[in-house]
Amino acid sequence: MEEPTATISLEELDPDGFQSPDFLQDACMTCGYCASACPVSGVDGFDPRKLVRMVNLGLEREVVDARWPWICTMCGRCEAECPMRISISRLVREVRSRRDRDRVPGILHKGVEAAMETGNNLRLPKDDFVFILEDVAEELAEEPGFSGFRVPVDKEDANLLVTVHNKLVNTQTEDLVHWWKIFHAAQEDWTVPSENWEGCNWGMFTGDDEAVRRMSDRIAEQMDRLRAKNLLWPE
C-alpha cells in the first residue's frame, strides 16, 4: 500500500469528487480533535482529520484504496468530539461502500452474498438450523428448572420474535441458551423464525445499503408471516 503523499499536485484536486453534503465534511476546520480521539490515528499514516481532508479534496481513489477505513471500527469517538459535528464514521462507511465488492477485505462480502442468497451469513439450510436449535433445547430441558423446555420455532401470534446471531448456530451454540433460560423463567410467549432468522447484518460494515434494506425487509416479513406482536432488536 502506497503511503499517502505529503504534497498534492493541484491537477489532482477534484471539486466534484465527493459531493456528499450529508456528511458535512467541508465544514472541517482542521482542528484535529478527531485525530486525538481516534484509537487508530497513525496507522498507515492515516487519521480521521486526514481522511476528511482527502475526501474534501476529492481524492476518492486514494481513500477508497486505503486499508485505513477498514481498520477504523467506526466507533464514532472522532465525531463525538468534532466541534462541527461532521459524521466521520458515516463518511468512513461511505468510503467503504465505494470499493469494488470483490475487493472488500476478509469474509465480509462473502457473508453478505450468502445472506442475500440464503437468508443467513452461513448458508445454513433451514433443516440444519432447526436441528441445531432443537438439539441444544433438548440438552437444556435436562437441566434443573428447565424441564419441558422447547424452542417455539415458527409459533404464530407470539408476543416476541427473536432473531439469531449466526455464530450461535455455528461455533458458539453454548450461548444459545441464555435468552432461552430468561424467556423460560419469565414465561415469555416467544418465537424464532425457521428462515431469514439472521440477526447480524454485515452490510452495515461493508457500506451495502441494499443488503441492509433487504435483510430488514425479511425480518419485517417474518413478523408479518407469524403475526408476532413485538420484535427483539438484534443484539
Partner: peptide, 11 residues
C-alpha cells in the same frame, strides 16, 4: 477493537 467488521477483515 472488534467493531465495524474488524473481526472479519483479516487485518
Amino acid at each position: 477493537g472488534g467493531g465495524g467488521g474488524a473481526l472479519l477483515t483479516g487485518y
